[in-house]
Simulated scan of single mutants.
Amino acid sequence: MNAPDRFELFLLGDGEKKVTFVPETRVPNAAIFTFNKEDHTLGNLLRARLLKSPTVLFSGYKVPHPLFATFELRVQTDGSVTPKEALGQACRDVVQDLEKLSQEFTKEWELKKIANTGREA
C-alpha cells in the first residue's frame, strides 16, 4: 500500500547517479562507493570479486536501510592501485565471468537440444 512501485526501485531519476565515490579519510588507500538503485546481488558479487584481488586488503558492503535500494561498498587497497581502479578491474572481471557463463550455458543448451532431437527420431 505505502510501498513504491517496483520499477521505481531500479530506474534512475533525472539527475541521479548510479555510483558516487567518496575517499575514506580515516583509512589510507580506501574509499566508499555508494550504488544507487542496486541491492545485495551486486553488492555481494563485487565484494567477493574484489577480495580475490591480491591488491585489495579489505572489501565489504552494507545496505543502510532495507526499504531503499542502495548499498555502500568500502574498498581498501595496498596502495599499488587506487580503490577506483580496483573496483573498475573487479567490474571488468565480473563481466568476463558472466560472458563465459553465458557461452557455456548456450553451448550446453544447444547440446541438450541436439541430444533430445536424436531421441525423438
Rank of each mutant, 00 (worst) to 15 (best):
M1E: 09
E24L: 06
V27M: 06
H65C: 08
P23M: 01
N36F: 07
L98H: 13
D5S: 04
S53Y: 00
L98M: 15
Q103P: 02
P66V: 07
Q103K: 15
V94L: 15
S59Q: 02
T34N: 05
G13E: 14
D97T: 13
V19S: 03
N29Q: 04
K17S: 07
L67H: 08
G60A: 10
V75P: 02
K112E: 14
L11S: 02
K18Y: 06
P64V: 08
N44M: 07
E24G: 01
N29D: 06
E24C: 05
A86H: 10
N44G: 02
S59L: 03
L46G: 05
K62M: 10
A90S: 10
K18Q: 06
V94E: 12
A90M: 09
K17R: 12
E8K: 10
G88Q: 15
L87A: 04
K112S: 13
A69M: 06
T82R: 01
Q89K: 15
G79D: 04
D78T: 03
F21A: 00
P64D: 12
A48H: 09
F35N: 02
E110H: 12
H65K: 10
L73F: 07
P66C: 11
V63E: 13
F7R: 07
L98I: 14
T25E: 12
L101E: 15
R26Y: 00
W109T: 09
T55E: 15
P83V: 02
V81M: 14
D39R: 09
G79R: 01
T106Q: 15
F10C: 06
T70S: 13
S80P: 00
S53E: 14
P83R: 02
H65F: 12
E16L: 06
D5M: 08
E72V: 01
L42Y: 08
D78K: 07
K17V: 04
A115L: 13
A30N: 03
K100S: 14
N36W: 07
L101Q: 14
V56K: 04
K17D: 10
A30K: 00
T82Y: 03
T77A: 03
T25C: 00
D78Y: 04
G88K: 14
E99S: 13
A115V: 06
N36L: 04
S80A: 11
Q96T: 14
E16Y: 05
N29R: 01
T25M: 00
L50Y: 09
F33P: 05
E16W: 06
L9H: 09
F10S: 09
T70Q: 15
D5K: 11
K113I: 10
S80L: 06
R47F: 03
T106S: 15
K100M: 15
V94S: 06
F21W: 05
F21P: 00
A86I: 05
